[in-house]
Nucleic acid binder design. Structure first.
Length: 276
DNA sequence: TTCCGGTACG
DNA sequence: CGTACAGGAA
């Protein structure tokens, strides 16, 4: 009973703060499930501020699932260039093709069948576009909820705690939590002095930072990105790719094999091209 | 568990 | 120069 009251007060404070300070991202004023899908896939592992211009250009050129489904992958990757994780772009186009043919799945399980749509993105679409009463637990919610409770929560517990806090407007609560996590309850140096719910929080200690990523310079990821950028501009022979990337032939060979397996590139005569 | 981009920030 | 990013798939 007392627990419910604490949570109710904390959520009231959260939503009051959000209504006064919400970041005006373009997708937040939209309910079109396609627009939400595009934004959410772009937002996977990419800061929201950086997604905005990509989202605008993408929606202008591919305003509907059919438009995207019919687009050459080369053009899709061209508009994607700079966002990273190029497989997301192909999966997004593949998802658009499914939707253009079969229509939209009407629940979270159905949405998760779409390429590139996992637990988070499915719940985000269900909540933001379809008004479903579900919590979209992303990295922000995981961190904020863990800090509120003073311990790192496992996925099942996180989902349960989030659903319990949702309130009548799931989309608004989800977005409020993400804003709080991004702007106040940051991973390092959180602004607890500016936090609207500090009095109901156990403090920042519970957050466990992720294991550091390997160096990007000289990595396979850098090579893959360089190959895609080259092939988006023009087809190239294997030798030309070795020359332009500056990596040795063995690594270029491996990268091309992986990219081909993922459906991003394919051989065309004596050259490599972006896959259809 | 590991890998997958590229950018911007302190 | 290290860090973090509205995750998903193999």
């Amino acid at each position: 009973m007392a627990e419910r009251s604490l949570e109710a007060e904390r959520n009231d404070a959260l939503l009051t703060w959000y209504r006064a300070t919400a970041r005006p991202f373009p997708w937040r004023s939209m309910r079109d499930p396609y627009a939400i899908l595009v934004s959410e896939v772009m937002l996977q592992q990419t800061q929201a501020d950086r997604v905005v211009p990509y989202f605008e250009r993408f929606m202008t050129e591919f305003p509907t699932p059919r438009a995207l489904a019919d687009a050459p992958l080369t053009r899709v990757l061209e508009l994607w260039s700079g966002l990273g994780y190029n497989s997301r772009a192909k999966r997004l186009r593949d998802a658009a093709a499914v939707v253009a043919t079969d229509g939209w799945p009407d629940d979270v399980d159905g949405l998760m069948q779409l390429p590139g749509v996992g637990p988070y993105t499915a719940k985000a679409i269900a909540s933001f576009a379809f008004g479903a009463s579900v919590a979209a637990v992303d990295t922000n919610l995981r961190r904020v909820l863990s800090r509120w409770h003073g311990e790192e929560l496992k996925p099942a517990a996180l989902q349960a705690v989030a659903e319990r806090n949702l309130g009548p407007d799931a989309a608004q609560w989800n977005q409020a939590m993400m804003d709080l996590g991004a702007r106040i309850c940051r991973p390092r140096a959180p602004h607890c002095d500016r936090c609207p719910v500090e009095q109901w929080c156990a403090g920042p200690g519970a957050y466990v930072p992720p294991r550091p990523q390997g160096r990007f310079e000289g990595s396979a990821r850098q090579l893959r990105g360089a190959i895609i950028r080259h092939l988006v501009a023009r087809p190239a022979t294997f030798a030309a790719l070795v020359e332009s990337t500056g990596f040795d032939a063995g690594h270029v060979e491996e990268a091309l094999y992986d990219l081909r397996t993922e459906g991003l590139v394919e051989p065309d005569g004596d050259r490599w091209v972006i896959a259809e």
